[in-house]
Nucleic acid binder design. Structure first.
Lengths: 113, 113
DNA sequence: GAATGGCATTCAAGAATTCGAATATACGGA
DNA sequence: TCCGTATATTCGAATTCTTGAATGCCATTC
């Protein structure tokens, strides 16, 4: 079962990736970066969060290879390392939205009784 | 910006979902359940982990609505609540595999120099 | 070269997660 | 009803994550 070891290693890496996505601020940053490269300043403005916090989250995502950074004069421009991440995010969001809709419908029915 | 609030709430839920996926054992369980409903016993056997640990992880995923459980006599059969989760997992795994491949290719080049 | 704007890092505290050990519960059969 | 198999829960310790506060660093401009 040497193949199982390889699978387990992949599960570990995948878990690490999911862990990196498991933060609302980071998900919002990814969504903002889906529009294209953005300087930190713009991300701070758009999220309304403290600059240090945004930098910390960007650093985490940079370490894990989810975003890449490039210096543009005095600014740092961040962008997505692999746009496929957006597809994964889209799917999970769809699942959530559907679930919320079902819950809502259920609440309506309960209301009507 | 009432809409922003709604978005943020969705990001929170999405982060919670990602958090739930952020564990190698749970990812392995989801993969096993992709084949169809399975009793806990089978999952314990397939993973080689302690029964309590598997039950704990299943409980977490049940609470978050990722899997559903049904009693079959003395056994509990678990299954995926929404198969779309597999699609999201597949995408992230593909990203990882590609990254590993690139790293491997890079190592080859470095080797050759 | 001092000041400023833009970003990163460090540190510490609090919260959350993971896991093993022990224990509890549920069901079916004798 | 007692037992064994199957599964769940509780508890405590160790580890990890998140964030604010403070501070550091780099490039540009004056």
């Amino acid at each position: 079962m040497i193949d199982l070891e390889r699978k387990r290693e992949l599960y570990r890496l995948q878990a690490e990736l999911c862990q990196t996505l498991a933060d609302p601020t980071r998900l919002e940053l990814l969504e903002l970066l889906s529009e294209g490269p953005r300087p930190v300043k713009a991300l701070v403005r758009a999220t309304g969060q403290r600059q240090a916090k945004i930098s910390q989250h960007l650093a985490v995502m940079r370490q894990r290879g989810i975003v890449v950074a490039e210096r543009m004069g005095t600014e740092m421009h961040y962008s997505l390392a692999d746009p496929r991440i957006l597809e994964a995010c889209r799917i999970t969001r769809e699942m959530l939205v559907d679930r919320l809709r079902r819950q809502h419908a259920l609440a309506e029915v309960a209301q009507g009784e």
